[in-house]
Amino acid sequence: MLGAWDAEPARADILIGQTTAVTGPVAASVGETLVGVNLYLNSVNARGGVNGEKIKLITLDDKFEPPLAGENAKRLIEQDNVVALFMSRATPHTQAILPLLAKNGIALVAPSTGAMVFHQPVNPLVFNVRSSYQAETEKAVEHLHTLGLNRIAMVHVDDSFGEDCLAGAMKGFNATKLQPVAVIKADRSKPDYAAIVPQLIKENAQAVLWIGSSVAVSDGVKALRKAGSAMQVVTVSNNASSGFAKQLGDAVRGVIVTQVFPSERAMGYSINREAAALAKADGSVTISPSVMEGFASAKVLVEGLRRAGPKPTREKVVAALSSMNHFDLGGLEVGYGPGDRTGLNFVDLSIIDAKGQFRR
């Protein structure tokens, strides 16, 4: 279990609950989002907290297992009495939490998944921050088409996350009047690269949109390169982490990753300047896309708590977030209202260079 603040004074007055994959195949990117969360929450607590109350984030490891995510959320709600849930990771894992929200009248803030099921139909207790996976995959296909790459394949994990990304990609294919040369499902735990890679090569794919965990996608890219294929690989923002780049090893150069936040080096955005200043003061934080997702998500959470007033309850937090029409994150505006829990609507693309840096 991880705490989000390490200051000594008194107890934490505001308890926030999180279930996420601290260990397992997405641990690298989860770890980076937590760095961003802690960077912001620590700064808030160092200034006295919110309305004079400290914030404590209780993080439980679900090991990237959906049933455990549900069990963790139940414990956080019923035993730890948290006032809100925050930044669950992945689609089926977050789906396991949904029944608990309505039963307990508790908000889920900034789920770290862009699945459309959390956008439509609108769940009044889910407050998204990041854009949707469908928007990412649709833009990815359209971008490949503009590059003249029209023989595009798709490999996706065989779960609700993968199906959601496929739905977005098909929008892109329809918009460009293309058809995928292959759509291949991959086991979430043990992708069969020995079958997947030869099929991609046989179909003469110029590019592949590969959807899965950072381990699954990085191993897939390495398997492609080992087979002598130079086809373009694109993946989505769940892999927008330095950890993913490291996992790619010698195969890192040229992999495209869609992004749901502006480049962390774009200092025209005040949120980036704020994070950079706090990282410099901390001395141990390196800013990455995943760090910025955690940082931005924590800002939305804190603003909701601030608007809920002293001694926030679950009901007050939901009401405060529901009426947050226009909140400037620092060059990016988040807003919620009746029938709208989308948060940001921002998608960009990056390419990883030979040094493992994300370039726009």
Rank of each mutant, 00 (worst) to 15 (best):
A10V: 06
A10H: 05
A12T: 07
A12W: 00
D13G: 14
I14W: 01
G17A: 06
Q18A: 04
Q18V: 00
A21I: 01
V22K: 11
V22L: 15
T23K: 10
G24F: 07
G31I: 09
G31D: 11
V44M: 00
G52C: 09
E53S: 11
K56L: 03
D62M: 05
P67Q: 07
P67I: 08
L68A: 01
A69Q: 03
G70M: 06
G70C: 05
E71H: 01
A73Y: 05
L76N: 00
I77S: 08
E78K: 12
V82C: 00
S88W: 01
T94D: 10
T94C: 10
A96G: 02
A107D: 09
L108I: 06
V109I: 15
A110D: 14
P111V: 08
S112L: 14
A115I: 05
V117E: 07
F118S: 04
P124Q: 05
N128Y: 01
R130Y: 00
Y133T: 05
A135W: 01
T137L: 10
E138Y: 10
E138R: 15
H143W: 15
T146R: 08
L147V: 03
R151T: 07
R151V: 02
V155R: 13
V155E: 14
D158E: 15
S160T: 14
S160R: 07
C165V: 00
A167C: 04
A167R: 13
A169Y: 14
T176H: 12
Q179Y: 10
V181T: 15
A182E: 12
A186N: 08
A186M: 13
D192P: 04
Q199N: 12
L200T: 07
L200R: 10
K202P: 03
K202L: 05
E203H: 03
N204K: 13
V208W: 07
L209S: 06
L209V: 14
G212E: 07
V215G: 02
S218H: 05
A223D: 13
G228W: 06
G228R: 10
V234Q: 13
V234S: 14
T235D: 13
V236C: 05
N239Y: 01
S241C: 06
S242A: 12
F244W: 08
F244K: 08
A245Q: 14
Q247W: 02
Q247F: 09
D250E: 12
A251C: 09
R253T: 03
R253Q: 07
V255N: 06
V257L: 07
T258Q: 02
F261T: 09
P262C: 08
S263I: 02
E264L: 10
A266Q: 12
M267V: 02
I271A: 05
I271W: 03
E274Y: 02
A276N: 09
A276Q: 11
A277T: 15
A279L: 14
A279I: 14
K280C: 01
V285T: 15
G294K: 11
A296V: 10
A296C: 08
S297I: 00
A298I: 02
K299M: 10
V300K: 00
V302L: 02
E303G: 01
P312S: 09
R314I: 04
R314S: 01
E315V: 04
A319D: 13
S323E: 11
N325Y: 11
H326E: 15
G330L: 12
L332M: 15
G337V: 08
P338C: 11
L344H: 08
D348Q: 10
S350P: 04
D353L: 11
Q357D: 09
F358Q: 09
